[in-house]
Design a protein around this nucleic acid. Structure first.
Length: 428
RNA sequence: GGAGGGGUGACCGAGUGGUCGAAGGUGCUCGCCUGGAAAGCGAGUGUGCCGUUUCCACGGUACCGAGGGUUCGAAUCCCUCCCCCUCCGCCA
């Protein structure tokens, strides 16, 4: 959510953000400002009337205590008329406030000046490519073939039991998932994150707090009968952990890491892009969240990026870092990097991490604040998060990039203590 | 799921219709005291919104789990919902 002052003082900037992100119509800003005028004049009128009523009510109290009931009655007569008017103005103010709130929620975050302006994913900037894509003197198999060959996962039975995009993992495939969980969490903890296990369902307030609602409604599944959403990312419960709280300045930053399954409806996706583990409705992820002092948030973004990249370095997977352009970044973000891993058989890049600074956008919705000084007024914190990392595509890359001519797969050494095996396709 | 109890400021806790944004205590901030510290003493210390203002600030209004209602007036009375605690039941 944007600060209303920002909209009032720099409407051009907000319109520019709408255009750059390709979200909504710039007219929204003018409508909002008009409503804001109405809202304020209504509130002023209402509060003036309430002030008079309070004054009279106080007089009535004094008179009654003094036993001057007749004088009190006279004033009560007078006040009676105000009552209806106050009620009317209250309702009106409420209506206008609700409308305004709805509009404000439709305004996306303003991109940081360093973000390239662009229309879509073609305008993202490749900042760096790390590692060498492996070369093969045989035809490398795509991961779905490797999975079938070694019985690492079963998507068909997943489709039978639940639906497409809900895989079973089996044998070394399942053990690899478990290994990644511990591997990623251990690394995150060593890098200063507090480990957390969050609820996997959230209520609408939380979904709105981090920005999944109202704008990305078709992203999430819903639980009928209970007002819950299965989380599309652990970002939601973890960041909302501190909703409506005020930190002492010393308590910042807060850093959490968490493992969770994630559920995404991914409405409308199909085709070869979604084959195998490329895109699932349920997947596992380790998420990193930072809640920081506003002055520190871009340093924190760099650090978070480094945390995510170091995991790819450790796994010896080739990857590239993209700085997302305005048109391809999300509603809530001020600046986003995507990390994409090289998938050797598919010969394409797969997104395994998205690292974002939301600045105060989420914090304003969630009212997460800090006090700069012990007696000072609270200010909004900045929130950030990044995947560290999403499992299925890491698995896809590990399988494809590390396959041998005999069809076996050799896992990177750092994982051996976690997996308990070094190779897939043999007994090792 | 059943029965009972309860949700008040950073925390504890008083307050059952009027002068209550809310006693008292703790914590915190500043000052006094001290060689320094502790103890003492004094002052201050919630948030949102609207308005006035050159800063400092000031005025108004709302908020005592949430929403609605009664009333000239609600933390206090009524209704609905949510959450927490205790006991019982069920259960990984």
């Amino acid at each position: 959510m944007l600060n209303l002052d920002t909209v009032r003082n720099t409407p051009r900037r907000v319109k520019e953000a709408l255009r750059a992100k390709g979200i909504g119509s710039p007219d929204l800003v003018d409508t909002l400002l008009e409503i804001d005028e109405t809202r304020r004049s209504t509130i002023t009128e209402l509060q003036d009337l309430q002030a008079r009523q309070n004054e009279l009510s106080q007089q009535i109290g004094t008179l009654k205590r003094e036993g001057k009931d007749e004088e009190a009655e006279a004033i009560i007569e007078k006040t009676g008329r105000m009552k209806a008017e106050i009620k009317r103005l209250k309702d009106e103010a409420q209506t206008v406030e609700d409308r305004q709130e709805k509009l404000v929620l439709q305004l996306p975050n303003i991109p940081h000046p360093s973000v390239p302006v662009g229309a879509d994913e073609d305008d993202n900037e490749v900042e760096e490519t790390v590692g060498e894509p492996p070369t093969f003197d045989f035809d490398p198999a795509p991961h779905w073939d490797l999975i079938a060959r070694h019985n690492l996962a079963d998507l068909e039975r997943g489709a039978k039991v639940t639906g497409s995009g809900f895989p079973f993992y089996l044998g070394k495939g399942a053990r690899l998932q478990r290994a990644l969980l511990n591997f990623f969490l251990d690394r995150a903890r060593e890098r200063g994150y507090t480990e957390m296990q969050p609820p996997l369902f959230v209520n609408p307030d939380s979904a709105e707090g981090t920005g999944q609602l109202p704008d990305k409604d078709d992203l999430m599944y819903e639980v009928p009968g209970d007002d819950f959403y299965p989380i599309p990312t652990a970002e939601v419960p973890v960041t909302n952990f501190h909703r409506d709280e005020i930190f002492a300045a010393d308590d910042l930053p807060q850093q959490y890491c968490t493992y969770s399954p994630c559920w995404r409806r991914e409405a409308g996706s199909y085709g070869s892009d979604v084959r195998g583990l490329n895109r699932l409705h349920q997947f596992d992820k380790v998420e990193l969240v930072r809640i920081v002092h506003p002055d520190a948030s871009y340093r924190a973004l760099d650090a978070l990026l480094e945390d995510a990249e170091s995991a790819l370095d450790a796994l010896d997977l080739p990857y590239r870092r993209l700085l997302m352009c305005t048109g391809d970044m999300g509603f809530t973000q001020a600046k986003v990097y995507d990390l994409e891993v090289w998938s050797a058989a598919q010969e394409r890049w797969l997104e395994v991490s998205s690292v974002s600074n939301f600045e105060a956008f989420q914090a304003r919705r969630m009212q997460i604040r800090y006090r700069p000084e012990p007696e000072a007024s609270p200010e909004l914190v900045h929130t950030l998060n990044g995947s560290g990392l999403a499992f299925p595509r890491v698995v896809a890359a590990l399988l494809e990039n590390n396959q041998r001519p005999d069809g076996t797969i050799e896992l990177p050494e750092v994982l051996h203590p976690y997996t308990g095996f070094a190779r897939i396709g043999t007994n090792e």
